[in-house]
């Protein structure tokens, strides 16, 4: 009996010692990690003040990397998106574990195995609703819908991912660039009617769009350039596919902006528009007032700054040609 008690006591003691050893890191971490609260579309969530193992889902990946973050797990981005980011950021993305092709295809087992301390997600509401509980059970999760304004989104993302230093530098550069463009082209901005046209890989053959979303929102909202915009409450103009015969209608605008790649060539989907006789006959095209502008993205400051550089360079060509 005594032997049994001694053995039991020894086993319990050993178990306690082992459990203390095994739980040392985790328990100590949980008790000592500082936290703060961040508000996102899924409410106010308590997150680690300095998260070390961040997982990004949907559209949060590239903006976080752009601000200096290094997620441990990511959902895939398209090859064209990846081709537009700087090499260093590309390396950061590729070093992360791929968790699936999109927000609604996340491999939850793989995600849990990464032991994240923070999950950041931006995807359609309906897709998030399907995985919200699973994500919350793995780590504190912050979610933003697709309609959040990009600067608000960047600020919240930087705060959550503790990359506010990177954000501050980008914000200062953005403010300075906007002021420079407004000052340099003040008369042009005031007196010129612009139109931004686009075409995407998903566009129907023989159609294009007058695009009022994307980088052009920055030219319009932050710089003050005049572009056509949808009536209040109406769908964005860019949602309407226009047949090529309506290219002729662009004649009424002073300056046309259209999408080009980093090398200044029309993007692959837009190339058929540039090849049409109608495009070539436009007054703006014939007088050199059709400007190719590079837009690598519009949901974080890094790509927006590159867009502003491209826009600045394009606008600089106008006075000499007029």
């Amino acid at each position: 009996m005594t032997t049994t008690r001694l053995l039991t006591a020894a086993l319990l003691g050993a178990a306690l010692v082992l459990s203390a050893c095994g739980g040392d890191g985790d328990d100590a971490g949980e008790t000592t990690v500082a936290t703060r609260t961040v508000t996102a579309d899924n409410g106010t969530v308590e997150v680690p003040a300095d998260p070390q193992r961040v997982v990004t889902i949907g559209n949060t990946t590239l903006p976080l990397i752009d601000m200096g973050g290094a997620p441990v797990g990511v959902t895939d981005v398209t090859a064209s998106e990846l081709s537009l980011i700087p090499e260093q950021q590309k390396a950061t993305f590729q070093a992360a574990t791929s968790l699936g092709s999109s927000g609604d295809q996340v491999d939850m087992e793989k995600l849990a195995a990464l032991k994240p301390d923070l999950i950041l997600a931006q995807l359609p509401d309906s897709e998030f609703e399907q995985i919200a509980k699973q994500l919350d059970s793995i780590a504190p999760t912050l979610f933003w819908g697709l309609d959040v304004e990009w600067k608000t989104f960047a600020g919240a993302l930087a705060e959550a991912g503790n990359v506010t230093d990177g954000l501050s530098g980008q914000q200062a550069a953005f403010t300075a660039k906007i002021a420079t463009i407004q000052q340099t082209y003040a008369t042009l901005i005031k007196d010129t009617s612009f139109v931004n046209v686009d075409r995407w890989a998903s566009s129907d053959p023989g159609t294009f769009s007058i695009a009022d979303f994307g980088c052009v929102e920055i030219a319009q909202g932050d710089i003050g350039m005049t572009f056509p915009e949808a009536a209040a409450g109406a769908d964005p103009l860019g949602w309407t596919s226009l047949p090529f015969e309506q290219i002729a209608g662009l004649s009424k605008y002073d300056v046309i902006t259209y999408p080009v790649d980093a090398a200044g060539r029309p993007t692959e989907p837009f190339a058929p528009v540039v090849a049409t006789n109608t495009w070539k006959a436009l007054p703006a095209v014939q007088s050199g007032r059709a400007l190719g502008v590079f837009c690598p993205g519009n949901n974080s400051y890094g790509p927006v700054l590159r867009y502003l550089d491209s826009l600045d360079a394009a606008l600089a060509t106008l006075p000499a040609k007029e």
């Binding site: 015969e245 002729a248 004649s251």
Partner: peptide, 13 residues
Amino acid sequence: AADIDQFAIRDYR
């Protein structure tokens, strides 16, 4: 002729 509206007829319609 090289008219923008004529292109719309010949190239699209």
